[in-house]
């Protein structure tokens, strides 16, 4: 088999095992072969780029068209819709009045609580080593929180572990343990300090401890830029 055929099979993904060995050998030893290989690799990248540019320009056209169609759509009113809206308003008002004088802590908690996503450890690529940290985050993303906690305990400690362990405890409703860990995050000024304020406030809401919840929410609003609007609304609802 000549060299250009070898390259041909490489680029059409059809090298046999033996050819692969020969290919690697030539790449190391034969300067001319290496040069041709690099030329074709570059060409492959360039052909791809050309495709990307064409496709990108098409997608941008779809994007512009969608925007124009959106702004062209005029709002349509009908008496039926207006009537329906009035009924909804009246009903909502009545329920609002019913709930006006009491704080529904459980609702406040469930409306505001969402588990924090994994933003620190990327498991999108296969790692050759299956480290305890990787296992912990795989378990975390799979919502297997008990296992995540165990793996976090086994892994070599990192700054953000306390926060994610706290999240895991929150998910399995062990609020005291979660709170304790979040307080540690704040004390030791680790990553996720602002977020920890938010979650501690939510735990206090769950425990119906209005004063403490407001205390943490106020700190969050004053010192950080995380969930400011949501925190203000919660303070209002609690006051």
């Amino acid at each position: 088999m000549n060299k250009s055929e070898l390259l041909y099979h490489y680029f059409s993904n059809s090298l046999t095992k033996d050819q692969e060995l020969l290919f690697d050998k030539l790449l190391k030893e034969d300067e001319e072969f290496k040069k041709q290989f690099e030329f074709e690799s570059n060409l492959k990248r360039v052909v791809k780029e050309k495709r990307h540019k064409e496709l990108k320009s098409k997608l941008n056209q779809f994007e512009t068209k969608a925007k124009i169609e959106k702004t062209d759509k005029k709002p349509s009113f009908s008496y039926l819709k207006i009537a329906a809206s009035i009924i909804i308003l009246i009903t909502a008002g009545w329920f609002g009045y019913q709930n006006f004088f009491s704080i529904n802590y459980e609702n406040l908690y469930s409306e505001n609580y969402n588990s924090y996503p994994n933003t620190v450890y990327s498991i999108t690529r296969s790692d050759s080593t299956n480290s305890p940290e990787r296992e912990a985050f795989v378990a975390y993303e799979a919502a297997n929180y008990q296992l995540a906690i165990e793996k976090f305990d086994k892994a070599k400690s990192k700054d953000y572990f306390n926060f994610y362990k706290a999240q895991s405890y929150l998910n399995i409703k062990q609020y005291e343990k979660a709170k304790h860990l979040l307080e540690t995050v704040i004390k030791t000024d680790e990553e996720f300090v602002a977020e920890s304020h938010w979650y501690i406030a939510l735990i206090y809401i769950k425990e119906e401890n209005k004063t403490k919840a407001i205390e943490y929410l106020n700190q969050l609003v004053e010192k950080y830029k995380y969930k400011t609007e949501e925190a203000k609304l919660l303070i209002k609802a609690l006051d």
């Binding site: 041909y8 680029f11 059409s12 993904n13 059809s14 074709e40 570059n42 060409l43 492959k44 360039v46 052909v47 791809k48 780029e49 050309k50 495709r51």
Partner: peptide, 26 residues
């Protein structure tokens, strides 16, 4: 290379595209 690839005739561009982008065999 991109600059010069763009100046190739349609036939060449199509053939190289089939070969390198689509990964087609002969």
């Amino acid at each position: 290379l991109y600059k010069h690839f763009s100046t190739l005739g349609k036939k060449c561009k199509e053939l190289l595209d089939l070969f390198y982008y689509r990964g087609f065999t002969i």
